[in-house]
Design a protein around this nucleic acid. Structure first.
Lengths: 224, 224
DNA sequence: ATATGTTCACTTGCATGCAAGAGGACGTGA
DNA sequence: TCACGTCCTCTTGCATGCAAGTGAACATAT
């Protein structure tokens, strides 16, 4: 399963995962020859993988200089959150219009698991559910273009890393879970516009919780 | 200006333009070696250009088989129009919140030119303004991520080719121009949510005019 | 005539060699 | 000590050679 596909796809997938997870230090460090040696391939597939990651917005290729992990500026982060709110809001609305689909049942199970995690005060457990919740909303839109571009944008945000931070604010855990529940209720009720509004408000609340927590955390990411 | 940048960028730009304009027949026909000969370069830059166009959704690379111009299915087109409505609606809202920016003055000039074209019954002249109008709205959002992803999605639609078709319905020309004017008025009035609503309604009306015209035109594009 | 097995031309995937440019290190002068 | 000019190493950009897989044409057997 690891070697079956093409080399460039393997390199691209692994590099993408490492960048999102934050394993790769931002700034310098992506030499084609070094990566080629690391993955046991030649420069060519590495090169093509890097080119794809560039159009995905994850790395920046400076001609004749080098390839670097993209460092989102503060303005980038603001824009990405705007896009998150727009796309997830629209997705919730489209979801609500579709009625009973497999994603809806998955969403109900997600809420049950989340409620239990909150009841236990299990932040890590809840954080894991949050990612699934948002992915389910987006996939439940039934619009594959939306899913694709949403994924690309959230990869630029390295969102999974941020969720835990946003939940560190006292009381945010329960608020977030309650907001999820209200969104689900509106989807079940097929109230498209209220679903969109609540989803947007939820995204904005999460963003504010995150930005607030980041200030106190000393601005771990996002150097200007 | 044509040869200054890198070869792969030139090839990518030219190919993209040809695909959007419809010069390249959909389906088969993008051999790396043929394109290399045509542009006077080797396979390598052609290959990298094709890879980029693939992640942009314009071509499809089937491993060991060949590269083909992507043919949007009917479902793809529906999804793309949904995205167009979502993104342009959000852009109009963000635009309205920004007040006096250079794009606003450009938008006023665009409307004047459009009004004159409509008064003359100049369909081609108006069609040219339509593209600019929508681009100005999107760029006026002030969100570069929105601009980037909107552009990618509209490239997949090969939108410029479709505008003329959508305007072929009797009376649509004046309707479209009037809708543009109302959107502009709401942006000037800084009424964010009405701007978004009117913009979305405009996009939907254009889509319906297009789909209606395409049925009568014998479904020139969009084979399933 | 139809179905089937085989071959073959053509495609892209990957490896490697060479060239050109960028940026820093280093030496030199004041 | 500081400013400046030169060189040198390292980077990617492009060209090319080889290998492997695909799909269709073709011959063959039923």
């Amino acid at each position: 399963m690891l070697e079956a596909q093409s080399m460039q796809l393997m390199v691209a997938d692994r590099l993408r995962a490492r960048i999102i997870a934050g394993d790769l230090e931002t700034g310098v460090g992506l030499s084609e020859i070094a990566l080629a040696a690391e993955y046991g391939v030649s420069r060519t597939p590495v090169r093509e993988a890097l080119k794809q990651l560039q159009t995905e917005g994850l790395v920046e290729i400076r001609p004749r200089v080098g390839t670097f992990v993209s460092t989102p500026t503060r303005a980038d982060i603001v824009e990405l959150f705007q896009m998150k709110e727009i796309l997830e809001g629209a997705a919730a609305r489209l979801f609500a219009a579709r009625g009973e689909i497999p994603e809806l049942e998955a969403l109900r199970r997600n809420l049950e698991t989340s409620d239990e995690a909150v009841a236990r005060g299990d932040v890590a457990g809840y954080a894991a559910q949050v990612g699934d919740f948002h992915d389910l909303i987006v996939r439940g839109s039934g619009n594959r273009k939306l899913v694709t571009h949403y994924t690309m944008l959230m990869n630029q945000l390295a969102y999974p890393r941020l969720v835990a931070t946003s939940l560190s604010r006292p009381g945010r855990l329960g608020e977030s879970d309650a907001e999820h529940g209200r969104v689900l209720a509106m989807i079940v009720a097929k109230d498209e516009w209220t679903a969109e509004r609540l989803m947007r408000e939820h995204v904005r609340a999460s963003q504010e919780a995150l930005l607030g927590a980041m200030v106190f955390a000393g601005d771990a990411d996002a150097r200007s």
